[in-house]
């Protein structure tokens, strides 16, 4: 919640685990880290029990790089694969009951605004397609209608991967799965369209084929959620177990699906666009002032 709570008290350095010391000394805190710098700093995610070659892990890893202020962020999740890695990250993680993630996030965001009036705290909901489009659907829609200022990220693996391969609302029509032997009978839910109807300020759809793009999209979504309104990111993160994709082919599958039906798409409201431009200008002016003061000195 704050960098101060992460820092090790003097005298305790030698007793802390190596990984923790590395995180405090060489973590991504207090500065803008770029995707191209990955591998040269300690990331906020530690070792985790997710499957080898999981595209969801890749997405979450790069998404957490994109967070503008990881030390001031709270992540909410629910039952599903994503929580296995999110709970191993050095970010407060709230494991909501199935279905209420966006309800909890609404209350949390409002509470944080009252508790920390001088600080910006970001709330991000990161859950699967089952948690957001099926079981948590009502809370998701209502948080959007109420224009709650936080980010919702859907990790869309198009199946209930954790429980053995049941169809979800986001599974494609006709898909045969272990627990859907006759194939799904209904169309994939159009969550992007629903978000548009609800007036979400920033909507993005992407596949994890371009790490820089993932980080940029998450950064934009979190920044817009601070000031303008709700934001929604829908990411294709294939389940290589339930869809039987050999791990070396995971990226090929992501590229194929991206080309076929999951192309990059961004819908941004005028207000959000103006806000982003304003931030960019402020950043440039600040950099200019710093350069000028350096030249003067």
């Amino acid at each position: 919640m704050s960098l101060d709570t992460l820092k090790i008290s003097p005298g305790f350095e030698s007793y802390m685990p190596k990984e923790y010391v590395d995180l405090v000394e060489r973590g991504p805190y207090g500065r803008d880290v770029k995707v191209s710098e990955m591998g040269t700093f300690k990331e906020i995610i530690e070792e985790h029990p997710m499957c080898a070659g999981c595209a969801m892990t890749l997405f979450i890893r790069t998404a957490l790089i994109g967070l503008p202020a990881p030390e001031h962020t709270v992540i909410l999740g629910t039952a599903g694969c994503g929580r296995l890695v999110l709970s191993q990250a050095s970010i407060p993680f709230i494991y909501g009951n199935y279905g209420d993630t966006n309800g909890v996030a609404s209350g949390l965001k409002r509470g944080l605004e009252i508790r920390f009036p001088n600080q910006t705290k970001d709330v991000v909901v990161m859950a699967g397609d089952g948690g957001l489009a099926d079981i948590g659907f009502s809370c998701v829609m209502h948080s959007w209608f109420r224009k709650e200022k936080f980010t919702t990220v859907m990790l869309d693996n198009e199946v209930y991967g954790n429980t053995g391969g049941q169809e979800s609302g986001m599974t494609n029509k006709g898909m045969v799965l272990k627990m859907a032997p006759f194939g799904k009978k209904f169309e994939k839910m159009d969550m992007i369209g629903l978000a548009k109807t609800a007036g979400v300020a920033y909507i993005a759809r992407l596949a994890p084929t371009n790490p820089t793009r993932i980080a940029n999209v998450i950064r934009k979504a979190v920044l817009i959620a601070r000031e303008v309104g709700p934001t929604y990111v829908q990411a294709y993160t294939s389940c290589n177990i339930e869809y039987a994709i050999p791990t070396p082919k995971v990226m090929d599958d992501a590229r194929e699906v991206e080309k076929d039906r999951y192309g990059f798409m961004e819908i941004i409201s005028d207000e959000a666009k103006a806000y982003l431009e304003r931030i960019e200008q402020e950043k440039k002016a600040k950099a200019k002032a710093v350069a000028a003061s350096k030249a003067g000195a």
Binding site: S36, M38, G39, T40, A52, G53, T57, L58, R61, P211
Partner: peptide, 18 residues
């Protein structure tokens, strides 16, 4: 190129020595 450090799904598994 550093591409492998960006596409590895595990954090800090492929690191980069400057």
């Amino acid at each position: 190129c550093r591409l492998c450090t960006q596409f590895c799904p595990e954090s800090n598994t492929i690191n980069y020595d400057i």
